[in-house]
Design a protein around this nucleic acid. Structure first.
Lengths: 334, 334
DNA sequence: GTAAGCTTCTACAACGTTGTAGAGATCACA
DNA sequence: TGTGATCTCTACAACGTTGTAGAAGCTTAC
């Protein structure tokens, strides 16, 4: 049975409230009293019961981070960054995995966790802006990832369209004309897949290249296996092409694997550029060119926005656009 | 202001306790009453206040998973598995990152989180068994990873020594005699690095191969960068060798990168085997042979052990040894 | 000398839920 | 018809904390 404030108070010979005051930094306390209380805390190994504190204070000090899967390196690294950023505010992060499941994403928005956490940082994959409007209710939320439609939610993103355009333009710059895009979500109306496709198409347009629908390959989950499958499909179809822009790095690494397996060279035969700049990208053979989003910047911005939203429920929603940069490595360089 | 049980009770025309009873599945309730209550819950969008419930019940429904870093793929995948296993018990997992920092690991054992969670699943890196004995107090804990010294804590592991021995023996089987070991922690007295080294040495001994200390290279963090650095060090030292057993897959992938960069072939010049079988391993070029621990089995066992420990504080501590298998891929196969 | 202000501490109620105990109905059976 | 068992529901207290309100002592200023 752990010690409570009552035990501490009794041992220190003060009232419960005085213990509470000492612990919460109330200024008007005699030094000697404070010392006695702290000694008692120490002696009993007292730890505050957070359920009780939260019940009273209406805050839990917990935030929820909802991502598709931690086993995807990008989200593992992102979770890492968010947890660190949250720590600076002494918040605790509770990670929820949504899979790629719409029902679970809706569950996160409207679900039971909302009673447990003060706010939500949410990287949605399948739910639409309309869903978000509908289910979020009056709850502090920060979205990760651009929303195509305007939605009254704080939002941190990198410029997906610009970044995708830059990645594709880089392939054009090194002389490629037949550039595949891997990872589209043809049925989505919005979301990163849509935006990255848009950037890809814009870059082609600017280069005067006619897009070829045969070179645009969907991939639902953006895992390595799907990247490899998509690339195999392209290679086996006999479609001629000399480069691929993959919508994330795991797709790209899977695709690169399939190219090499097929006996072709990267980048000589097929140049590949990815997106996310996960650690793997730097140690693949050849190392993978990729768009590096400012992960720490994104995490910090998300936590900051959420903090402001929690403190002050009513204010215009904000959009933070984080920086990105193209890291050119050997998968696109001679 | 969210609705409380009182609001629901008033709307349904029953007592608060009846609402509570309906919601917690108490059997003796008239169907019509139950229906009225549920309708009221629905109409008000009522969600239970978990702080209050926890305060009353003395349980939070949260468990803590403490790992070094989520951005390490193995731990990302492990966290994924633990979260899924915990979900089946409708527990929520709170992930704590310890870095490789002893102070933080001690903090996890003795820290403030203990008031917030019902139990802890802990993958320690730096703390010793003695630390664990000292700091854990009376708190439900399950350790991930073998303890060399006996410590009164539930424990899930794979047979590190056996697995390392099998990996090394595999290299011997394909005809290698000069086998490097990458990833030792020379100052540790226990922990996976020590055990894997032990397995490595055992396999050499069984094959009648004299270990060569020049081939045993430390690496603190088991990141790709350290694996690459260790391998570069070996290559530049001019030490002759024809294989490497890396203590985890990220080390192995970094090492493989360095080998290929150095203009040598894998496996012809240097065969490489890793440990953990992370997803990357299957898509590197060449694909990496690795020890596959039963990750889901480990996660489930850890959650099960923790559940038993929470329900019933007093009983002998248990050790679960999960299965592993060697996945042979091209990094060790002609 | 006393009003006003500061410092230090305390009692009490409240946060939203559930366990305990028990009050009334209703039912089965003699 | 009475007796005990079963069903349905309720009042109350309690979990451990903090906000509110205020008491008591001390200092300052006239």
């Amino acid at each position: 049975m752990p010690a409570t404030m009552h035990d501490v108070a009794k041992l220190a010979g003060v009232s419960v409230k005085t213990v509470s005051n000492v612990l919460s930094g109330y200024p008007y306390i005699r030094e000697s009293t404070k010392a006695r209380v702290l000694a008692a805390v120490d002696e009993l190994g007292y730890r505050m019961n957070l359920s009780a504190r939260n019940l009273r204070a209406g805050r839990t000090g917990l935030i929820c981070l909802a991502v598709p899967e931690l086993s995807l390196p990008y989200f593992g690294e992102l979770a890492d960054a968010v947890i660190r950023a949250a720590e600076e505010r002494s918040w605790t992060v509770l990670v929820e995995q949504t899979g790629a499941d719409r029902e679970r994403e809706v569950g996160v928005l409207s679900g039971a966790r909302r009673q447990l956490v003060d706010g939500l940082i949410f990287a949605p994959l399948t739910v639409s802006s309309a869903d978000i409007e509908q289910f979020r209710g009056d709850f502090p939320i920060v979205l990760l990832g651009e929303r195509t439609f305007d939605v009254a939610v704080d939002n941190v993103t990198i410029g997906n369209v610009d970044a995708a355009r830059m990645a594709t333009a880089h392939l054009v710059d090194i002389g490629r004309r037949r550039i595949a895009a891997i990872g589209t979500h043809p049925t989505d109306a919005e979301g990163p897949a849509v935006l990255r496709l848009e950037g890809y198409l814009a870059a082609l347009r600017e280069a005067g290249i006619e897009p070829d629908t045969e070179l645009i390959v969907p991939a639902g989950l953006w895992h390595r296996a799907e990247g490899a499958a998509a690339m195999r499909q392209l290679l086996e179809a006999g479609t001629r092409f000399d480069a691929a822009f993959c919508f994330n790095d795991t797709l790209a690494l899977g695709a690169m694997y399939a190219v090499l397996r097929h006996g072709l060279r990267v980048p000589e035969d097929i140049a590949i550029v990815g997106f996310d700049d996960i650690e793997d990208a730097r140690y693949s053979m050849p190392p993978l060119s990729s768009i590096a989003p400012g992960r720490d910047q994104i995490a910090r911005a998300a936590v900051d926005l959420l903090a402001r939203r929690i403190e002050q429920r009513e204010h215009a929603h904000q959009q933070v656009v984080a920086d990105f940069e193209l890291r050119i490595r050997e998968s696109t360089a001679g």
